Amino acid sequence: MSGIVDLHVSEYRPGGHMAGHRHDEAWFCLVVEGGYEETILGMRNVHEPGDLLFCPAHAKHEQRFGQRGARKVIFHPNDTLAGLLAEHHARLDGRPLIRRSATLHALGWRIVQAMAVEDACAPLCAEGLALDVLAETGRGMAELSMMEPAWLRRVRQCLHDDRARDWSLADLAAVAERHPVHLARSFRLFHHCTPGDYLRRLRVERAAHLLRTTRRPLLDIALECGFAGAAQFSRSFRAVHAVTPSAWRRSR
């Protein structure tokens, strides 16, 4: 088993719009032609050929396609493959992941061409190329992990150590001893999200742990984890897990 599930090529018409929706499973998408704008977990990005995207399971996303439409290679990783990627720093931990390179673009076209050949070897060839895509991605993530500067690791550690604090960008810039704009750009480069997105994820992860291991009231958990109240807690939790905290607790 390659670990690649449901590998296929999808085409989207020019000017098309896909309203906000979710998938039950996580998926990878490699743009090979055209382009589109996507909003996912509150973040908006413009995708071009050569972009490899990871969409977490149950993450709400919306897409608007440009004048050329788009062609994408789409596939799902099974649990074994996701674990292997995590060992090589490409953690699929609930955040969108975006990589862009000419190498990925070339691999995407080779997958399209392989799948157009109607013989018994076509699926094997395409799956092998999809694994090359993930290897390229994992290699890039490992390189970024090793390159992350000490001052940026210091900022992340502050967020982990005091996730309930109402951090501002200025506060974090003071910790880093860097300009706020430089901090924001560097954080997105290495972690594919803003410091605020990262902090929200940390708070939700802590809240999920308390929901699973205690019977404490939701408001108590919300306040301990740094949320202003039950409403804000519910909105943030739904953005990550696609269900309310109470529904998530009942399902466990």
Rank of each mutant, 00 (worst) to 15 (best):
residue 198 Y to I: 09
residue 222 A to F: 06
residue 189 L to M: 10
residue 221 I to G: 04
residue 179 H to Q: 13
residue 195 P to C: 00
residue 209 H to L: 15
residue 198 Y to K: 05
residue 227 F to P: 14
residue 184 A to S: 07
residue 233 F to N: 06
residue 174 A to F: 01
residue 220 D to K: 09
residue 183 L to E: 01
residue 199 L to M: 09
residue 176 A to L: 12
residue 198 Y to V: 08
residue 215 R to Q: 13
residue 201 R to G: 15
residue 235 R to Y: 11
residue 197 D to I: 08
residue 224 E to G: 05
residue 198 Y to H: 12
residue 195 P to A: 06
residue 219 L to V: 14
residue 188 R to W: 09
residue 205 E to S: 12
residue 232 Q to T: 11
residue 186 S to W: 09
residue 190 F to P: 04
residue 221 I to F: 03
residue 210 L to T: 05
residue 235 R to E: 14
residue 226 G to E: 06
residue 199 L to N: 13
residue 184 A to Q: 02
residue 215 R to I: 09
residue 206 R to N: 11
residue 188 R to Q: 11
residue 173 A to I: 06
residue 227 F to N: 08
residue 235 R to W: 12
residue 184 A to N: 06
residue 233 F to V: 01
residue 236 S to A: 05
residue 212 R to H: 14
residue 173 A to W: 02
residue 224 E to Y: 05
residue 178 R to V: 09
residue 193 C to M: 07
residue 180 P to D: 03
residue 231 A to H: 02
residue 176 A to P: 11
residue 187 F to H: 11
residue 182 H to I: 13
residue 215 R to K: 12
residue 230 A to W: 03
residue 186 S to Y: 02
residue 212 R to W: 14
residue 208 A to Y: 12
residue 229 G to T: 03
residue 213 T to W: 11
residue 228 A to M: 04
residue 202 L to H: 00
residue 171 D to R: 01
residue 209 H to K: 14
residue 209 H to S: 14
residue 222 A to Q: 03
residue 187 F to L: 12
residue 197 D to V: 04
residue 208 A to T: 13
residue 178 R to W: 15
residue 204 V to A: 05
residue 180 P to C: 01
residue 219 L to I: 13
residue 186 S to E: 10
residue 187 F to T: 06
residue 235 R to I: 08
residue 182 H to V: 14
residue 213 T to N: 05
residue 230 A to H: 10
residue 190 F to L: 12
residue 177 E to D: 08
residue 189 L to A: 08
residue 173 A to T: 00
residue 228 A to W: 00
residue 208 A to S: 13
residue 227 F to I: 10
residue 221 I to K: 02
